[in-house]
Amino acid sequence: MTQDHERIDELLAGYVLLALSGPDAEEADRLLSEHVPSCPRCGATLADLQALSGDLALAAAPVAPPETLLPRLHRAIEEVPLAGRAPRRGAFVALAASIVALVAMGGLSLTLDDRLSDAETRAGTALEILSLMRSPGAEPVSLAPQGETPAASSLVEVSAPNVRTLYLASENCPEPAPGMAYQLWLGADGQWFAVGPMFRPEDGVVLLELEDVDTSFYDAIWITEEVAGTVPQEPSTEGRSWRAEL
């Protein structure tokens, strides 16, 4: 039994650290449902390890959150309806039509025959967008080309209330200038957050999925053209860009 408990303790330690995977995670799940509830020793060990896991957070230096965070929390608590998010039916219909066409025609794999997994991923993302667009309150938003950005280029953001995923799609995203790359920003209360580069495949069809995004947190989206490989601090106002209020 001592050896058994040594093994169980190892699993519980890994469990509270979120460090288990595969068979170990499955075994821990079984233990937590079948053994730990009826074993005072293991229950006490788990409680101790969980408390330790919380205190370990203190080893990181404290950092003052942005002053805007508490007001945002208050707004989220009060569940204030977001302003200016009326459905844009035109964008909805146009994006749905283009994505349906892409999926139906197998267009997503036309230029990706040597990268099957990417093609499958993109096809899956396209289907997820279609699914999301059917959900209540889905609100596709067209991003307006800014400055000298080709007016015919289309970028559409799709999100829905209470869905923590944001999609960005384009069927004809132009190639960035040599040495440049597209950067995705999300804005809240005038502050812009660099989310990461928006990868443009060779065929110009962008299907980007951002998981675990609190879409109620942001009020604007902006795609800018930045020097490739750099980490911009502020959105560039030069070069191509697309922008919309959410």
Binding site: A57, L58, A60, A61, P62, V63, A64, P65, L69, L70
Partner: peptide, 11 residues
């Protein structure tokens, strides 16, 4: 808020 943001940033 400070300890929470600190560990979240660290991770």
């Amino acid at each position: 808020g400070g300890p929470a943001y600190g560990v979240a940033l660290r991770v």
